[in-house]
Simulated assay, not measured.
Amino acid sequence: MLDDIDIPTLSARPGIKWAQADGAIPAWIADMDFPIPDPVRDVIVEAARTDLGYPAWEADPRDNPLVGAYVARTARLYGHTPDPAGVRLFTEVIQALQAILYVATEAGDTVAVHTPSYPPFLETIERMGRRLLPIPMVDGRTFDADRMDVDLRHHRCRILILVNPQNPTGRVFTRSELTTIAELAERHHMIVIADEIHADLTYAPHRFLPFAPFAPDRTVTLTSASKAFNLAGLRCAVADVAAPTVRRALDMLPPLLLGQPGSLGLLGTLAAWEHGDPWLAEVLALLERNRRMLMAALPGRLHEPEGTYLSWLDLRDLGPDPAARIRDEARVLLSPGPQFGPGGEGFARLNFATSRPVMEEILSRLTKFISEQTITN
């Protein structure tokens, strides 16, 4: 059933991805087109049928079952056992990032990010009055460690936001790269905020490695079931605050100042992490298929994504912002590359988390458009 969804069915959805498509096929925002896992749907329906009152664990946050589920799942999948005492719950990864920046930095402090990067992170840095230090992804594949070392020292950087798997390039950082980042964090006394929300979406033979074991005293890990299980609207995220200084700073705030996820978000996330793996395995097989289709249809336009369901298309021969032309002329909605900061000009991000019929139509429109431009030029 996951692979049978067609465009008319999807066009009736009220969510932002399809509601704002304006007749185009949306392949922009990081939502999947697949229906949510049955265990998630079942637990939400049951909660709505029986009890939406205050949850039992609210009396003592240490009793929250999501904390134990996160710890157990991280240990089982990635061989790292987080300290339950450091786990804090937020409504989403962006909110958690803003909370960490709020307690760990001040206006004017420098925050480093591998670029191109996720636009809401760049906007957060700007809106909070912090200074962006771009760490360029060389050819979309890696970073220059020596240059990074010099830049961090010159700018007295306080925070590095590490997005792994990387958005938008789909890179999964290697053990060697993570070791280098940990060494740089220690050398420059930095906190690393590791956004690992796409960790479950890693393709063999690549292997996702959590960053916390590389520099536990300097790491805050952010994650959620929202990407791997298509649950963004439930608003539930985890911050694994291993860094003691950040943990103490957060605990000095009034307990509800930063809000908290609701019962349905917690229940849905719990169901996904404990019972959603069969669904995820099926989705990963479809994403792997779509990834191969994309590589075959657009050779030379992208590096093979190692993780995520996002691809970073090189369309520089079509102008500085090709996504606008593709939207207007090919009627496919992509994320414009310039939104992703330095290094984004001439690129566009494509979301390939959809069914075969939709993927085939997207690729048909894109290849036709690119071919026509090539002939014209």
Rank of each mutant, 00 (worst) to 15 (best):
M1D: 06
I7L: 15
I25R: 03
P26K: 00
A27F: 08
W28M: 06
A30R: 00
D33H: 04
P39A: 01
R41Y: 03
V43T: 15
R49L: 14
D51M: 04
D51S: 09
G53W: 05
T74C: 15
R76V: 04
L77P: 08
H80N: 02
G86S: 03
E92S: 14
E92N: 15
E92T: 10
A104I: 01
T110A: 13
T110R: 11
V113Y: 08
S117A: 15
E123D: 14
E123H: 11
R127I: 00
V138L: 05
C157T: 15
P168Y: 00
F173Y: 15
T180L: 12
A182N: 10
A182L: 11
H188F: 13
H198Y: 15
A204P: 14
F208S: 07
S226Y: 04
K227Y: 12
A232Q: 08
A232G: 01
R235I: 01
V238N: 05
A239L: 03
A239E: 04
L250M: 14
L253K: 08
L256Q: 09
Q260A: 15
S263P: 02
G268F: 05
A271Y: 02
V283R: 12
R289L: 05
A297I: 13
L298F: 09
R301V: 13
H303D: 13
E304V: 10
P305F: 05
L315I: 11
G319K: 08
D321C: 14
P322A: 13
R325N: 12
I326W: 09
R327A: 10
D328L: 10
E329I: 13
P336R: 15
P336S: 15
G337W: 02
A353R: 02
T354M: 13
P357H: 02
E361K: 12
S364E: 13
R365K: 11
L366M: 14
F369S: 11
